[in-house]
Design a protein around this nucleic acid. Structure first.
Length: 474
RNA sequence: GCCCCGUUCGUCUAGUGGCCUAGGACGCCAGAUUCUCAAUCUGGUAACACGGGUUCGAAUCCCGUACGGGGUGCCA
């Protein structure tokens, strides 16, 4: 019988005194299982591994844990590469594929079997004599009695009594290694010094430590990150929560904003400055500063970050991002009516209004659609119930037919029509805006309207609106 | 049930025994500005889960309670 009291404590490579000094001995890994598209929780784990590695000059390893062969699909693995790269998370080694290391895992199990540290069992969990692995026989680790102490950088020391562990399976009867076995063997073989992962894996850590020690290896230092949770404070799950990075990208979130936001879930810089370049986040990052409590993924705050990042873009970069985004989005206008130069002209007017790239669509659709898409709430508010709306529409139709077709002239013309009807500028533009754009909110009205629509088209839309109003209210 | 983990404004966090009448950010509310909406600026709202200790002094240390979460598979 063996009492295990070894801990996974190492030196303190992230000690502030050592900060900024290259510590080449640090090796971390991001080890996703490709069972679904990369989601924000996994991305956060990848990011924290990367931040730690980059902050101490360590090595980042990527290992694909594809041991569950029926659930793995190649496109899911490719999605992992794609989204890591999207977020700007690179790696120094790998990708290694756990599925290619099966013989090594078998060898490790055989070693434990030979040393009497594990035993064969049948599907009814009866211990079998012998040490020859074969189909139909699983292998269980012979858990010694004792207590294992996990020295967790985030949580401090966690002690688990082995009686809670049982003789756990390390090799399945179908001839495949289990998660803990593969994980422990790979971490050992790849000289991983720090295992930074989700808290949901905390309870499997003692098993991994026991296995590593049984195999004669030093277990890594663990750092279990607080879980990302939904409104109900439940662990974010792919099934019930919309959390795939893909969906955020499709909605028009920038990678830079997403990465910045993710870094702030479970950690905060000591100087409290939240929105900042990744290089500064790397400088500020301390693994031991990571929080213990789970964090809610707050889309409202993400939106704010995204808006800030969009506003920081140069017009050229924003235009590029918008055009790329529009090409992969559902859009209400016929493609042949789309004009790149019009979008380019609109960028400066709408940049400060966008929180996501998707927000551009309702800002510009009226310039490309044959008819404006009328929002009924806007119509009701600004036209049906708008003060002197009928008079303003009629007055605008008359006045705009002759005035100079110039933004300032048109603007002043509309305002004078309003004034003549006892209505201020705000109220005067409202019915015109809804008639021309379909909505009561949008970009500054007069410049794009005059520059990109003809006088004839504007008059037609005003006339259509006026006709509808007088018809419906008579 | 059992084991483990957690608990500072609605949310993300700062805080590592005195600098805390608890700071920042998002949200929300109000005002300024404005052709709408935003953006911007100004102001405001709002928290140390509870109860005991320890200490001259506790959000910070200890114990208990409550609540929440994770795990409890031949899933990862």
């Amino acid at each position: 019988m063996r009492s295990t009291t070894a801990t996974a404590h190492g030196p303190a490579p992230n000690d502030p005194a050592h900060h900024g000094v290259t510590t080449p001995s640090v090796r971390v890994r991001f080890a996703p299982s490709p069972t679904g598209y990369l989601h924000v929780g996994s991305a956060r784990t990848a990011l924290f591994n990367w931040l730690y590695a980059r902050s101490v000059g360590g090595v980042m390893v990527l290992r694909i844990e594809d041991t569950d062969e029926n659930r793995n699909r190649p496109e899911l693995t490719n999605a992992i590469f794609e989204y890591l790269s999207w977020l700007g998370i690179d790696y120094d080694e790998g990708p290694y594929y756990q599925s290619e290391r099966k013989e090594r895992h078998r060898e490790a199990v055989q070693q434990l079997l030979n040393e009497g540290l594990a035993y064969l069992c049948d599907t009814d969990n009866n211990e079998l004599a012998g040490t020859t692995m074969s189909a139909g026989k699983a292998v269980r680790f012979r858990t010694p009695s004792g207590i294992t102490h996990i020295g967790d950088v985030v949580r401090g020391e966690v002690a688990v009594d082995h009686s809670q562990l049982g003789d756990f399976v390390i090799w399945r009867s179908d001839g495949s290694p289990t998660f803990v076995l593969a994980n422990a063997v790979d971490d050992a073989d790849m000289s991983i010094t720090h295992a930074i992962r989700g808290e949901d894996l905390l309870s499997s850590a003692p098993r991994a430590v026991l296995l590593a020690e049984a195999l004669g290896a030093t277990p890594p230092v663990y750092a279990h990150l607080p879980l990302l949770v939904n409104e109900q404070r439940k662990k974010l799950a792919k099934r019930r929560d919309d959390v795939s990075l893909e969906s955020y990208r499709k909605q028009g979130y920038l990678a830079s904003a997403m990465a910045n936001y993710l870094a702030l879930l479970g950690w905060g810089p000591r100087d409290e400055l939240e929105i900042r370049p990744m290089s500064e986040i790397i400088e500020q990052f301390r693994l031991e500063d990571v929080n213990k409590a789970s964090a809610f993924f707050d889309v409202a705050k993400l939106q704010h970050f995204n808006g800030v990042y969009i506003r920081q873009l140069s017009s050229a970069d924003l235009l590029e991002a918008l055009v790329a985004h529009l090409q992969t989005s559902q859009v209400p206008w016929p493609p042949e009516r789309f004009s790149l130069s019009v979008v380019a002209d609109m960028v400066g007017l709408v940049q400060e209004k966008l929180r996501t790239l998707d927000d551009i669509v309702p800002q510009i659709d009226w310039l490309f659609c044959p008819d404006p898409i009328t929002d009924e709430a806007s119509w009701d508010k600004a036209v049906v119930r708008g003060k002197a709306a009928e008079e303003i529409l009629a007055g605008a139709i008359a006045a705009l037919a002759n005035c100079s077709w110039d933004p300032d002239a048109v603007k002043e013309t509309v305002f004078s029509v309003g004034e003549a009807n006892g209505v201020n500028r705000s109220k005067a533009q409202a019915p015109v805006r809804v008639a021309v754009t379909g909505r009561s909110v949008g970009p500054p009205l007069f410049e794009p309207m005059v520059r990109h629509l003809t006088r004839q088209e504007v008059l037609r839309r005003l006339q259509t609106a006026h006709t509808r109003l007088t018809t419906e209210t008579s």
